[in-house]
Design a protein around this nucleic acid. Structure first.
Lengths: 228, 228
DNA sequence: CAATAAACTTAAGCATGCTTAAGTATATTA
DNA sequence: TAATATACTTAAGCATGCTTAAGTTTATTG
């Protein structure tokens, strides 16, 4: 049984819910506590503990040894946290001219500290954007996720075709800084010229300049066919 | 003796240091723990406890039953927190058009959560302002406080003279919203027409419109002589 | 100047969120 | 299917920052 009363949504709890949401995106299976622990860089023990607390708050369902699943209530909080994160990123890029690699860490802390009033004003200032500067959809205030165009990862794209960059995985700052240095932006045109069988490196052309990306770097870019 | 090790600057600690700085502004006397407790709306016990911790960190000197005084190190942290607060206020007003009453509470949480990098970018964006939208000086990155022009409180001003509003005490949101509603802004011209002996109400004229302010409301406004 | 009031501190305790160490359940494999 | 490895949970403990209750010091006043 729980040893104490759990009442408040805290920064930690928002981070758990956000991470569980991300880990649930492509599966219907419950998320294991160890997977969460790994992502949040804490021990399994801490995650088990928190699972009980969040379960007591009806933010997720938790079966011992089986893992965790968000409830509607938990999903709503996760989406709202993601919303605040992505609005902050958009706002900082728009007002201060920060670049792809600079916004994530800032938004990571600001997302937990912003009143609904301020978030609404930022949303309005940005004219209610559907996508953030990395191409990720911004959940609406009502918790609806705008639908991203059907994208394909650059590692899976067809040789000889020209694409538009529609989304970028920005979990790695170093790679983002590299893209910024090359002048690559969202909605840049990118022609996939060839792929090397040896290690799946790709040869691309962006703004008429040729680049070679390793498979790992290419896997960060998601594109749509230019002629759609 | 302290029961445990104290290492980190936390949000709470920044709030203590900021409050002690504010309470030390017009006196050389040590600040009593009860005064701090009252301002921060916590118990004296908590303040005594924290005094020991901050003293262990060499952020203030603390003599039991005598009160507390910031060290240079503590003063630096307080000033930096105030700097972040006032830059945020200035930024939110400039970008989002928030008004006098709307920024304080937002800045109060954001001030603790902003990297030096982001603060520098905001500072640069605002062109290194010396004063915030309430007329308060913004400490520089080096911890220097810009010198405010010699102001006088409206409660002490001379009848018959015309002044410029140079600073506003914005600790009360209701009063700020009232000023906003009247269209009163920083650097507005204000003519002091009369003062009632009964309760020290003042009759003023701003933008050619007459207002009556209670002494309490008037005490929020600080002015300089128009013809200087 | 002693009694008392006011101010302040200490002690014990609790909520949060983490850790390490030990214990239990599930999965694997011989 | 029993032994063992892996995954997961529980228990104990600690740092932070607060509370209430009890104890101590300083200030006040008759």
């Amino acid at each position: 049984m729980l040893k104490f009363i759990v009442t408040m949504i805290t920064i930690s709890k928002e981070d758990y819910l956000k991470e569980i949401y991300a880990l649930s995106l492509f599966t219907d299976e419950p998320v294991s506590t160890s997977k969460i622990a790994e992502k949040l860089n804490i021990t399994n023990a801490a995650t088990s503990d928190m699972a009980k607390k969040l379960s007591a708050l009806d933010l997720l369902s938790y079966e011992k040894y089986k893992g965790v699943k968000l409830t509607e209530k938990g999903r709503t909080i996760a989406l709202n946290t993601i919303r605040r994160h992505r609005l902050w990123e958009t706002f900082l890029i728009k007002t201060l001219g920060l670049n792809w690699g600079e916004v994530h860490d800032e938004a990571e802390v600001l997302e937990h500290q912003t009143s609904e009033f301020l978030m609404d004003r930022i949303d309005q200032f940005l004219n209610f954007p559907e996508f953030d500067p990395h191409g990720d959809p911004i959940p609406t205030k009502e918790g609806l996720m705008p639908v991203l165009p059907e994208v394909v990862c650059l590692t899976e794209a067809e040789i000889g075709k020209t694409y538009i960059i529609q989304k970028v995985d920005h979990d790695n700052k170093e790679v983002m800084d590299y893209f910024t240095k090359l002048g690559i932006e969202l909605y840049s045109e990118i022609a996939l010229e060839d792929r090397m069988k040896f290690d799946n490196s790709v040869f691309v052309s962006i703004n008429n300049i040729r680049h070679t990306f390793s498979q790992q770097v290419a896997s960060k870019l998601f594109v749509v066919n230019k002629n759609i």
